[in-house]
Structures are given as C-alpha cells and as structure tokens.
Computed example of a mutant assay.
Amino acid sequence: MAEDVLSQSEIDKLLSALSDGSVSAEEVKAEEEERKVKVYDFKRPDKFSKDQIRTLFMLHESFSRLLNTYLSASLRTMVNIEVLSVEQMTYQEFVQSMANPAVIGIIALPPLKGNIIIEVGPDIAFAYVDRVFGGEGKPSVKSRALTDIESAVMRRFIDTVINYFREAWSNVVEFRPNFETMETNPQFAQIVPPSDMVVLVTIHMKLGDVEGMMNICIPYLVLEPVMSKLTTSFWVAASVDRESSPDQVADLQRKIERTWVPFSVELGTVDITINEFLTLGFGDVLQLDTLAKDELVCYVGTNAKFRAYPGTAGKRMAVQISGIIEGDEDANER
C-alpha cells in the first residue's frame, strides 16, 4: 500500500504534466484500471488464505523445535531444523519435485480423512542412518535405494517425526497418526488426484555437516474439517490455554515419574599413586576409607541424595536407606 502513495513532488510533476498536455487524463485512468487486473489461474484455485498459511508456518515452527531437541540429544551432534516455506500447489507439482529414489512415508491421521506424505531428502536419510550405526553422519556417495535394514531405521525415524507432528498439532486437532507404508518411487505415492490442491511445508535440516530437506505434503481434503481453526488468533489462544491446563501438568508429571535415572552406591574411596595403579593385579587388596558398619553414600545420577547401610536381600546385595542428604545439588555432585 505504501508504494501506491505519491509524494508531494510526484504529485506536483503529475499536475504539471497534465497541464502541459504531455500526459492525458485518459492515459492515467487507463493505467489505473490496468493495475486493478489480477491474474487468477482457475486450474489452481487458492484453497488457503494468507492467514492460514501464516498459521501453518508458525505451527510447523513449533514442530521443528521439538524435533530439533530430540535429534540433538539422540544423535549427539549439532542439529539445526527450521521451516523454509509453506506454499500451496497441485499434488502433481509436488510429485514432480521429488527425487527418485526418495524416502516417502505415507501417514494416516484418523479421525481426519485421507493421508499425508513425509518425504526425507536422500542426503539427510543416509546421514541419519550412518550416525545411528555409529558413523560420522555422512551421506551416501551415490544415489541408491535403501537396504532392508536402512528402511527399518528410517521407519523408526518417521515414527518419531509423526509423534512430534501430532504434539505440534494438538492445539488445533487431536489425531492418532498411523504409519501406513513407505515408498521410494514418487509415482507409487498417489494419495490424491494430481489436480487436487495440497499445502507443502518445506523444512531445512542440518545434521552435523550434512544439509538437506524434509517435505510434509498435506492435502486440502485432510485439512478441510479444521480449516476454521487454522487462524493465528485461534492457534495462539489454544496455545495459551493448553500451557495452563491441569491435564498437561498431570501428563508431564506422569512422564517424569516414568523416567529412568541411574542409582549407585559408593562403597568407599582410596587414594593411590600412578605407580601403584600401574602395578595393580588380580588378587591385590585396596583398603577403603569406610568401615563395615559405616553409612554409605547413594547417588542419583551424579548427585548425592541418600545415606544407607549395606546388607543383603535374599541372594542379592542391597542397601537400607537411613537418611536424606540435604543441601545444594551442585555441592553434592561428584
């Protein structure tokens, strides 16, 4: 709109040109009418408004952050995931843009109708597989189809992706993702007619030094029942309500209670020289700084939390908690 506003000097030049006769009023009127014409392709009708596209962008930004956190921890490498674009196109255009072979997961989202596609770029797929198998996370030298073992690894990867996808969409609609099948040839991944409109979410992924793309194709047919909820105001309001929901707090508490943590008991310590350490052998005895009747220190993770007495329970060694170690966690860390 700002480009359509003329400055005072431009107005003066236009009035001067009209008065000189170098520019006629008819020419100005014709140019104004020409600017009002908007090209519209009836073969590709727009199904999504700008506000809905903006909401989908924010929604998948949340999904990218969740997936980024998970992959950084599980792969133990630098991971960067961000949404590049959200655009609408025909399904045929999307199929033609995919590589062959590709890693294509077809996902059902009941109770929503239809399927969606999650396509992982070959470079990212092979780098992920290599990292999972203990490698440096390098892509394949040449383009090839996945082996059976590599396909099983990528199925687990896409399973993880759709779990975080469901969590990111939970503010808009609750669905139960179901991994239907995985294809490598785009021509076999026909989920809607070629002329149907879809929204394509393009996500840039970087695993270590390898960069690539992941595409999420969502047909209009799938989103049609929830189109009214794809607005910025609804999404923000739902996010605020969900943050303060008691159900979410209870769900988080249940997840924490089921989390496994390492628990260890320190029998004692002893200081020895490097020379003594190098000459240790089978049958040598080290005298610890604790007596048989002394309390032992119990660690949860790396923090000292309890005191306990050693003993047995049946045929197993055990400890009986005798007290709680209070104080700062950093001070109690070993």
Rank of each mutant, 00 (worst) to 15 (best):
A2R: 12
E3S: 10
E3M: 10
L15T: 04
S16C: 06
A17D: 14
S22F: 08
V23I: 15
V23Q: 05
S24N: 07
S24H: 02
K29C: 08
R35K: 15
Y40Q: 15
D51P: 07
I53S: 09
I53T: 06
R54Q: 10
R54H: 10
M58V: 11
F63R: 07
T69I: 08
S74Q: 13
S74Y: 10
T77Q: 10
I81G: 00
I81L: 08
V86W: 04
V86H: 01
E87M: 10
E87R: 14
T90H: 08
E93C: 00
E93F: 03
Q96T: 13
Q96L: 15
S97H: 02
S97T: 06
M98L: 15
A99G: 15
I104M: 03
I104R: 00
L109H: 03
K113W: 01
I117D: 04
I117M: 13
I118T: 07
V120G: 00
I124D: 00
Y128L: 08
D130Q: 03
F133R: 14
F133D: 08
G134V: 01
E136H: 11
G137N: 02
K138E: 13
P139W: 00
S140W: 06
V141W: 08
L146D: 00
E150S: 04
E150D: 02
V153R: 03
R156G: 06
I158G: 10
T160P: 14
I162K: 01
Y164R: 13
A168E: 06
S170K: 03
V172Y: 05
V173Q: 07
N178A: 15
E180D: 12
T181W: 05
M182E: 04
T184W: 09
N185Y: 01
Q187S: 13
F188P: 02
Q190G: 05
V192Y: 00
P194F: 01
M197P: 05
V198E: 07
V199W: 00
V201Q: 06
K206G: 09
G208I: 03
G212L: 05
M214C: 11
M214F: 04
N215P: 08
I218S: 00
Y220S: 01
P225E: 02
M227T: 08
L230N: 01
A238F: 06
S239T: 14
R242N: 14
L252V: 10
L252M: 14
E257K: 11
E257C: 09
T259P: 10
W260Y: 12
S264G: 12
V265C: 07
E266Y: 07
G268A: 05
G268C: 04
G268Y: 00
I272E: 01
I272Y: 01
I274P: 12
F277R: 03
G281F: 01
F282T: 14
G283C: 07
D284L: 02
Q287N: 11
L288D: 08
D289F: 11
L291D: 15
Y299W: 10
V300H: 06
T302M: 11
N303C: 14
A304G: 06
F306C: 06
R307L: 13
A308I: 07
G311Y: 08
G311K: 04
T312D: 12
K315N: 15
R316I: 08
M317T: 14
V319F: 07
V319T: 06
S322D: 11
G323S: 05
E333P: 11
R334N: 13
R334F: 14
